[in-house]
Computed example of a mutant assay.
Amino acid sequence: MSEQRARVVFLVRVPVSRTDEFLAAYEAVRHLVAGGVPGHLVDQVCRSSTDPEQWLITSEWASLADFESWERSPEHRDLVRPMRECFTDARSLRFHIHAETPTPTPVLAPMPATAPAPRG
């Protein structure tokens, strides 16, 4: 059986006064990971619509083993340290992706019929 794609979720709290520092650290991590960590597919950072200190960081991986290999590396610990220093609380969850809705294929609208040129 082939390995399933995985989603890793971090629910974190960041004081409002450290938001800029947190986002700058996230950007550094995001660009380096996207540029060459094996198995990394995509990530997002989301801020709560009701609590400005609540953040959600998600990442998708080709397999949970790819994420765990990255997480155990010394490079990971060094790279994420500035971001983690902004957290007052953090919770991590890991999931295998069981099913997903496919991306819809764009449907092209039919071209409107053109009226014949007036005779005159």
Rank of each mutant, 00 (worst) to 15 (best):
V42F: 12
R7D: 06
A6T: 05
H98I: 07
R72I: 09
I97S: 00
D20Y: 15
A25I: 10
L23P: 05
A34Y: 15
R77E: 14
V37I: 01
F95M: 12
F22I: 07
G36Q: 05
T88E: 04
S59V: 00
L41W: 13
E75P: 00
H76E: 03
P102T: 09
S92Y: 13
T50G: 11
R77Q: 04
E71W: 06
A99P: 02
L56Q: 10
S92H: 09
H40K: 02
H40Y: 08
A99R: 08
T88H: 02
A28I: 08
V16C: 06
S49G: 11
G36L: 05
A62K: 10
T19F: 10
H31P: 08
S92E: 08
S49N: 11
I97R: 14
L32W: 09
V37H: 00
R91W: 01
L56P: 04
H76D: 01
A90C: 07
V29S: 08
M83E: 01
C46E: 13
R84A: 00
E53H: 06
P38F: 12
S63I: 00
G35L: 01
E75S: 11
T19C: 13
E21W: 08
L23H: 15
E85P: 00
D89M: 04
I97G: 11
A65G: 01
V9T: 12
H31T: 14
D51A: 02
L32D: 14
R13Y: 06
S17Q: 14
L56F: 02
L79E: 04
E75L: 01
D66V: 03
T101E: 14
P74Y: 05
S73P: 01
L93M: 05
R81K: 04
A28Y: 07
T50W: 09
D51F: 01
